[in-house]
Amino acid sequence: MSFLGKTYEHQRDENFKEFLDSPGIPEDFKQKILSMKASQKIEKNGDEYTLTTNDAGNIKELKFKSGVEFDENVFEKVVTKTTITVEGDVVRQKRVAPDGRSMGVERHYNGDEMILVIAAKDGNARRYYKAV
């Protein structure tokens, strides 16, 4: 878990714009996400983790325990049941929306690189990050 405490900054995407064209994602939200240079960091304190995402000054913190479900406010008026599991150098996140649709996010850490893999019924995408 050498990734703990390191900040990873977004570098490039693969199929992400196409992924965002999936039904149910508001157009203004899509444009906002595509224009950001996000960074992410995971820290651990005892058995609790904090995943901090910084999107151009918009900071979001998720506090979680590995494998324990919690409510996540994904975007305005959409709250998912989310479970994040930390297994070695892979962090798996599963979101289930109120309408039953689900999405998986995996963060694969390898030294100073992190590949974020997003998978949903409507498609898949990859986002590439580098430690700064």
Rank of each mutant, 00 (worst) to 15 (best):
T50M: 12
E9D: 03
V68K: 12
D112N: 07
E9N: 06
Q93N: 03
L34M: 15
Q93V: 01
K44P: 02
K37I: 11
A131R: 05
S102R: 03
I115Q: 10
V79Q: 00
E18W: 11
G67E: 08
N73Q: 09
D47R: 15
E106I: 08
A56F: 09
S66F: 09
I118A: 00
E27P: 15
T80G: 01
F29E: 08
E61F: 04
E14Q: 03
K81R: 10
L34H: 14
L4V: 11
T50S: 10
A120R: 07
F64G: 15
R95T: 06
D55W: 12
K81Q: 04
V68Q: 14
K41P: 06
N45V: 10
N124R: 07
F29M: 14
V105N: 11
R12V: 01
Y49T: 04
Q93D: 03
D55H: 12
G111F: 01
F3L: 00
L62F: 08
K65N: 12
A38I: 14
T85F: 12
K6A: 01
E87N: 15
R92D: 13
Y109Q: 04
T82K: 05
E72R: 03
K130F: 01
D99T: 03
E18H: 09
D13M: 04
S39N: 08
E87I: 13
D122A: 10
R107Y: 00
Q40I: 08
S66M: 07
L51W: 04
G67L: 07
K77W: 00
N45P: 02
Q40N: 08
E113G: 01
K63I: 07
R12D: 13
E14T: 05
M114T: 04
L20V: 06
K130D: 00
V68H: 13
K30Q: 14
T85Q: 08
V90L: 08
K63V: 12
M1W: 01
N45T: 13
